[in-house]
């Protein structure tokens, strides 16, 4: 028996909106510690890891570990039927081939339940070691989204370079080139507008903008995004999900042929 009640149901709507274009089908893993997901995109270039800790739910019952295979597009369709301020409850029986999403309005005058068929999904679970990064950039998520969107009108790839001067996003295309430099800005009065760069050593990596733009679908979840870079690792683009967890996108770089 699984029963997860999330007062901030809007968070789950935003999580699904940020996942559904990258991954079609995925297993949600439910355990005593939380509700999580790890899935690769179909080309095995990008990976998303989601964690919503059990403490973040108003009520969290998970009698035994369960893996719920879901089509994320269909799940997103159902969650779109919830209002942003609805309380969302996810329910599933151990042997069931379906999951129920229950939506309650804040004043309890409307209650809806949507049942969705589950799928059997052969998922490939990757071991992701804890890593030390050469550079970690924290910046406003909306700014990062804007940069990725702007650069993708000019080129297909972005070079992200971190030096002690700041973080530089560069692209090149048929019509020309573009460089955007963001300098460190602690913004003590408005921490959500800060750009903080922690650099062990300079690093420069190239990534496909198509994936970066897909990751920025998570922008409504968090004011800040963290971009962790190392020369010998995929980049990690992380958005915090309120106080309860995170959504992390991993993207393998491109190299000169």
């Amino acid at each position: 028996m699984l029963e997860l009640r999330l007062v901030q149901g809007g968070l789950l709507k935003k999580v699904l909106e940020s996942l559904k274009d990258l991954v079609n089908d995925a297993n949600f893993d439910c355990s005593a510690s939380g509700f999580s997901l790890q899935a690769m995109d179909s080309s095995h270039v990008a990976l998303v890891a989601l964690l919503l800790r059990s403490e973040g739910f108003e009520h969290y019952r998970c009698d035994r570990n369960l893996s719920l295979g879901m089509n994320l597009n269909n799940m997103a369709k159902m969650l779109k039927c919830a209002a942003n301020d609805d309380i969302v409850t996810i329910k599933a029986d151990d042997a069931s081939d379906s999951v129920t999403f229950m939506f309650e309005s804040p004043n309890q005058d409307k209650i809806a339940d949507f049942e969705m068929k589950l799928m059997d999904i052969d998922s490939e679970h990757l071991g992701i070691p804890e890593a030390e990064f050469q550079a970690i950039v924290r910046m406003p998520s909306a700014e990062f989204a804007r940069i990725c969107k702007d650069l993708s009108t000019i080129g297909d790839t972005v070079v992200i370079s971190v030096t002690k001067e700041g973080v530089k996003f560069s692209t090149r295309g048929d019509i020309g080139t573009a460089n955007i430099v963001c300098r460190q800005n602690p913004s003590i009065d408005k921490p959500e507008e800060a750009t903080i760069i922690e650099m062990e050593e300079p690093v420069s990596l190239t990534f496909a903008l198509r994936y970066m733009n897909s990751f920025t679908k998570a922008t409504p979840l968090a004011n800040q995004v963290t971009i962790s870079l190392s020369a010998d690792l995929p980049v990690v683009v992380e958005y915090r999900v309120a106080e309860m967890g995170y959504i992390r996108f991993y993207l393998a770089p491109k190299i000169e042929e």
């Binding site: 095995h44 995929p234 770089p253 491109k254």
Partner: peptide, 14 residues
């Protein structure tokens, strides 16, 4: 522009 690396280059399948 350039070759796209795969995640399997970095992460092992569990």
């Amino acid at each position: 522009a350039g070759a796209q690396l795969l995640l399997s280059r970095y992460f092992q399948l569990n």
